[in-house]
Design a protein around this nucleic acid. Sequence first.
DNA 1: GTCTATACACAGATAGAC
DNA 2: GTCTATCTGTGTATAGAC
Lengths: 239, 239
Amino acid sequence: MNYAEFKKITVLHMKNNSQEAFTENRKDIRVKKEKTVVKNLERIFDATLKIGNEKGFHAMSMRDLSEETGLSMGALYAYFSSKENLMVMLQRNGRDSFQQILEQSVDKDASPLENLRTVIKTHLFMSEAMQPRFYFTYMEGKNLNKVEKKVAVEHELLSDGILVKILQEGQKQGIFKPQNHSLTTALIKATLNDWYLKRWKYAKLNVSVDDFAEYLLSIIEAFCLIQPLPENTQSHQAG
Amino acid sequence: MNYAEFKKITVLHMKNNSQEAFTENRKDIRVKKEKTVVKNLERIFDATLKIGNEKGFHAMSMRDLSEETGLSMGALYAYFSSKENLMVMLQRNGRDSFQQILEQSVDKDASPLENLRTVIKTHLFMSEAMQPRFYFTYMEGKNLNKVEKKVAVEHELLSDGILVKILQEGQKQGIFKPQNHSLTTALIKATLNDWYLKRWKYAKLNVSVDDFAEYLLSIIEAFCLIQPLPENTQSHQAG
DNA sequence: GTCTATACACAGATAGAC
DNA sequence: GTCTATCTGTGTATAGAC
């Protein structure tokens, strides 16, 4: 699987986030016509991500948001009860489907190595397809209240668990070395996050998301596999 | 070298940051008595890092800062011309000495492998010793103005250059594989940053900074070295 | 369901006494 | 060199017309 193939398959699941947000927040939203809500929530989310990533969520004023969405301030407050509530909605939205897509990408009949490759690519490709959302979630997560922060941490541990389980299974099957799989996973995650956090660097290095995936996987395999794979024919020569 | 040893050697260089800030910003600071400036700048920096890391720099009001430092708002503005100026001072402060310490840690007579180990540990240990500063710089860097953002990027590339050079030298000497050293470096940096960005995770995993260093290095060596080292005797068994 | 107009709290910043 | 008091702009949020 490469990014182009991934996009064809999964892009449909991901665009329906505001529909999901409607059902999740129905009771807090004053507007009742579903079609209107879905349309405007999408505008509000997109605008918030755009402005928020440009100058930070806190620095974004409701007047900024009003201008970017084309909705008046009065109208905006029909869709959320406070600015903080908007932040919480955005942080929650998409998390469950993200986790779901990751879990579904695991194939019980496939080898741990195949699953490792699939999960890492799926994670990477999703962050590529929804870069503004991932960036926003990472950078603004620290400003959440205690409860929401805890929820965020639990989700992260849940998603880490997918990789840990694959590494453990690989060890059981005798193809991965016995190592600290939680720590390996943490380090893998750090590099996966870097892809959407430091776009400018990878653009400068002229590295595509497919390049990135293969390179990262070759590192992981060099470290985890007992039986090293034959050297890749394509050269990774430095620039 | 482990963290305890590092701290003994280098801690002196790092605590004099406000002294450095005095000479760098002398012309913008209204107060002229050096001793007073150094003392109060340190309080201001510490307080800004503390509050900034708790709720974000933008959300910190000057009244918050006044309370935390014990200085009045009027007094605060004798040390910087605006809130943004305070941010810029904080971002600049320590960067040069960070780069310097990293560069000085490289030993021309040592092998590339030794230098790789030293630089990575130095980076990691410095971020451990000054975690609030590193966290703040990373998280608030995106809110800088264009010029300062560019400076930050250039500094990052400069510091990446140290590792790239070591990897290239290792390849030249025939002990590292020919690879995309810039990309390897980017991925190493991503994991190094994770150490101070995701403290909660490594605390939960019960991983010390020395554990982290050794584990990361074992991954890098597995990927980069042509001649693999003999397996470590200490087990990395997962918990 | 969306708008305009406005309330009012709080932000950053400064003047001038001490 | 530091303080208190205050200016002025901007922030979030809402009331009430349409």
